[in-house]
Design a protein around this nucleic acid. Structure first.
Length: 276
DNA sequence: ATTAATGTTCAGAA
DNA sequence: TTTCTGAACATTAA
């Protein structure tokens, strides 16, 4: 999303922000966003970056819009799938060949906030979001695993501990490093944890390269309303009953913490439980 | 027709 | 303190 949007918004001047009137439900926003929006008129976008799963649109006064797409939110430069679910539009001073920026969200769980520098620190800082999954060192992975007795799959989704891993990627990561998703995080060996770190890096970089996963509901799209390509590379996600691409075992689907987990029973197996 | 499922997060309870 | 549960929502498949 960020890569697609950056060339169209960097350096541009904000004219106004509009909440879309024909939307099924008002966009969840920070209180008083409307008021602050008046003050953001004329401000310049100096940059756009990703922080874990959030998108940060930085303004020249130190404030920033933080967009949280959640399940179905999209930032689009053109051609929204429909008008019905448009939630918000940033209107910029006209520039040749460059239009406005839209927030479209089918389910409506996404949020957009306008934060002051202090609020940014509070909402994106270490208390709220852990280290980005792509910036974790082996030492950090070790202390992360030692810190919790939950199943490793569930722990990987804890954004306070490690930020940026979503449900489908947790399954993909654990398949790549061959770890049973039901294993306790604290029970992993040093060697396994090292593999987990490497697998995380590999899967996330791969997914970013392929521009994300457009699942069967077809919702996810990049900034230009194009489907992603990573769904074709999924090893286990949404492939219950199919055979494992690595060992030929059968891929299973289980539920952990009320979320679907996919894994291969054969090459992601629990270690032998030894009587002691 | 119901029910369950969906790339998420958070408050509040256990 | 940590972990679990349910709710927020819209849409589709079983």
């Amino acid at each position: 999303m960020v890569r697609g949007i950056r060339p169209h918004v960097e350096g541009r001047i904000l004219r106004r922000l509009e909440s879309c009137p024909n939307t099924c439900r008002p966009l969840a926003m920070t209180p008083r966003l409307e008021l602050q929006v008046e003050q953001s008129r004329g401000k310049q976008v100096i940059g756009i970056k990703r922080r874990a799963k959030r998108i940060v649109l930085q303004l020249d006064d130190g404030c920033a819009f933080v967009i949280e797409p959640r399940m179905t939110g999209l930032l689009l430069l053109a051609d929204p799938p429909d008008r019905e679910h448009l939630r918000l539009v940033w209107r910029f001073e006209p520039a040749a060949g460059q239009g406005d920026l839209w927030f479209w969200d089918r389910r409506g769980l996404g949020t957009v906030s306008l934060f002051s520098p202090a609020q940014l620190e509070r909402n994106l800082g270490p208390g709220k979001l852990g280290t980005d999954a792509l910036e974790m060192s082996t030492e950090m992975w070790l202390s992360f695993c030692r810190s919790t007795s939950r199943a490793i799959k569930v722990a990987l989704l804890d954004q306070v501990k490690v930020a940026g891993i979503g449900n489908l990627y947790a399954s993909e990561i654990l398949h790549v490093c061959g770890i049973d998703p039901r294993r306790r995080a604290s029970g992993l060996t040093r060697r396994e944890i090292q593999g987990l770190g490497e697998a995380t890096r590999m899967v996330l970089l791969e997914a970013i390269q392929y521009e994300g996963s457009t699942l069967s509901d077809g919702t996810y799209r990049n900034a230009l309303n194009r489907a992603g390509g990573y769904q074709n590379q999924h090893r286990v996600y949404d492939r219950a009953g199919e055979s494992c691409p690595r060992c030929g075992g059968i891929i299973r689907r289980i539920v952990q913490a009320q979320r679907a987990t996919f894994f291969c029973d054969q090459c992601q197996r629990r270690p032998h439980r030894r009587k002691s």
